[in-house]
Amino acid sequence: MSNSSKVQKIQGRAVVLRGNDIDTDRIIPARFLRCVTFDGLGDHAFEDDRLQDPNHAFNQGANAGASVLVVDDNFGCGSSREHAPQALNRWGIRALVGGSFAEIFFGNCVALGIPCLKMGAEERTRLMAAIKANPGAELEIDIASASVTVPGAGSFQGEIPAGPQRQLLDGTWDALAVLLESASQIDAVASALPYTHRFQA
């Protein structure tokens, strides 16, 4: 029934994208939302930013194939479009590390099994420096300890709320299977709400 698999460790190269408040319109511009499937969105991730900035992290050949996206604060703010994490995911991103994430974006990521690790400013600065000093290094993100290890540069502590952490580790991040379990309780709650029968006596 479930699409979920356990998400415990993620390995891969990192791509660092600086800047606060990078919103979902920038991750995937609205014109690419004119679609009926998510296929092909990966090609358009950050399209407008990339056109305006030849040095954009997603334009650099060295970053192709990276699977960990390291960002600053309030990443993914703005629209609730799941097209944003879908585009990143289809580009190749499997996990994010950042100062903070907008809530809907964070939830959308969890629902796809993509962890977003929060990391304080100092620790994040050190992590970014370590990535720079070790180009091409394969990072390891460990969900249980909420930490990132850069080979040769040590480990960096992040945080992830207990609920999503457990969902990722147990493979229950796809909520649907869990929600489907309680059919009779859903009916009971529905019929106890007076508006579901238009307040008729």
């Binding site: 994490p85 959308n108 629902a111 929600l179 859903i186």
Partner: peptide, 20 residues
Amino acid sequence: FGIGTTQVRDVLATQCLAMA
């Protein structure tokens, strides 16, 4: 609440959301 597409699926299928 504004929700993502996977959650739209959840609501269609169960009329429920998993929310903190």
